[in-house]
Amino acid sequence: MKPFDYQRADDADSAIATVSGDPEARYIGGGTNLVDHMKLGITEPGKLVDITRLPYDSVEALPGGGVRIGATVRNSDLAASHVIRQRYPVLAQALLAGASGQLRNLATTGGNLLQRTRCSYFQDTSTPCNKREPGTGCSALEGWNRYHAVLGASEHCVATNPSDMAVALAALDATVLVRGQEGQRRIPVTELHRLPGDEPERETVLEHGELITAVELPAPSESSRSTYRKVRDRASYAFALVSVAAVVEVSEGAISHARIALGGLAHKPWRATAAEEALRGAPATEETFRNAAEAELAEARALRDNAFKIPMTRNTLSAVLRELTRQEGA
């Protein structure tokens, strides 16, 4: 790790000005991902601007029934927040499925959204990686790719986004609030992350110096049910092989509305629009669930070690839909 300058930001404007004006400067929140990467030599900032004392540490109710989550709210506090537990259980469950208690106490909402892939080759500076060093090649493409993408990958990068929280936010139609030198902008969370294409080094649409200040959730429908299901190698404390966040409404035996996002499958939280389309208006039957899953996975492409993710996703998505559409008392 090369030496760096550390500053604690007292106000957002000066923090944004500092980072925007210095290509080597980075924001630091909880640090659970950035400190790790600095130790591994993946990133070498010359300056860190600590944003954890900025006034973005609360979860507030919005007029109209939604909530605004400050960017520095710790993952543990967000998962414990009553409004999240009661009205957005899929988000609380996703947060609680991620990392460990002692990491969730450090990790922030904004940092979680920006955490980078856990691809072993990306994390090892002794192996080629287009994301880390554009143009050097993707080691995972022909290497060990059990945890890698089956959807939306490119020949340049097959990495997956590791966040659980972001998968839930994608299913909740969340909006990310971002401030930069030009002012504030709102980005649907599904548009925050990019697919790798031929620029895998760019993971989000954020410009250097832009700061995530909050995430807003729209009001939940009172009749919807939601859940987060994570399949992983260890019973706890492991990244997803496959995960499903789903928000579903059933009306008279048919699915009136479904929002589904998948984790562990792509370079970004994967909003399963094809599955949603297949579900809309269809009867809540095993055949419907399977068809929806098959529709989403039609374009899936397996690598050497991850073909299992396709049937695992199909089965898991079906199981989640079965659970969410089960009639009470049935």
Partner: peptide, 8 residues
């Protein structure tokens, strides 16, 4: 990984 000879 046989290409590099390291434990990935």
């Amino acid at each position: 990984d046989g290409r590099f000879g390291h434990v990935v």
